[in-house]
Amino acid sequence: MADERQAAAAKIELDAVTKRFGDVTAVDAIRLAIPRGELCVLVGTSGCGKSTTLRMINRLIEHTAGQIRIDGQQIRDFDEQRLRRRIGYAIQSTGLFPHWTVARNIGLVPRLLRWPASRIAARVSELLALLGLDESEFAGKYPHQLSGGQAQRIGVARALAADPEVLLMDEPFGALDPITRESLQDELLRLQSRLHKTIVFVTHDMDEALKLADRIVVMDAGRIVQQGSAEALLQAPADAFVESLLGGRDRGLKHAALTRVAERMRPLSDAQRGDQALETLSVAADDSLRQALSLMLWHGVDSLLVNDVEGQMVGSLSLRDVVVARGANS
């Protein structure tokens, strides 16, 4: 009963929240309700107030006016340290303590919460395994011995250590090279599909937002310009600013990047299965339409074979399938 009511209510609510630094209004009366388990990405140019908004949620910055509620309770009703221990926090520079080992860094919040040592050790092992890091190799290392991607993984593990329901991430992947960034994004999606945290994620990278977000909140000059799913934003950007963030004329490609090949392919008939020699190029069903299109452009073909994860041929994809959704013309 109580669970149902909580599930219905927003996990994090911002109600006309304003932040002024002296005469400057950094965040201007924004309203935002983030449901439980949603990955909400705040996106905008630097200085738009997205980081300020994030940091107001764990009270690293105190809001000037309005109300911020978590589970319906105002954050000002909590002791600020207790509030922060309940909220995971990961930042771009990782902020790992250089004089502590990886294991000790991860165990920080559980230790603040006075968990018994054995429970902390078990939790550290669990998190290292969850993030695909070998415990015997990494637990005793110091942060300066880690690569950027590994350090950021540890940063995320530390944020998750006390199993918080809310996770705040401030451009966590912003300083990584594109390949590492992409693998960490995939990892975050994989984690989120298992953990269902309520995540507020700040980035200036619209591609990152489109890839990760259940809901994208576009901010400009301290206000929310538009919010909605990636699909909704691409279909109907609210104004020229959102459109330019979405890449203007590249929008079609960004949209294609969001759609899986599996959604558009035609299943192969048995007869066609025998004919496979005709077409040698193939994409995976999990690839995006954008990748399929790129392949077609590069090789100058207008159709591709589609393989599933095991490499079994499962369908075909023509240029027309890419351009026109089948639902639209059938």
Binding site: R84, S93, G95, F97, V109, R158
Partner: peptide, 27 residues
């Protein structure tokens, strides 16, 4: 001390005294 370290120490919910003894002075 790197600003990120101080920021995350606060963001994780360490008290001022804990930050002083466990982070600032050792570093």
């Amino acid at each position: 001390i790197a600003p990120g370290v101080m920021e995350s120490a606060r963001g994780m919910g360490m008290s001022g005294r804990q930050i002083l003894w466990q982070v600032e002075l050792p570093l």
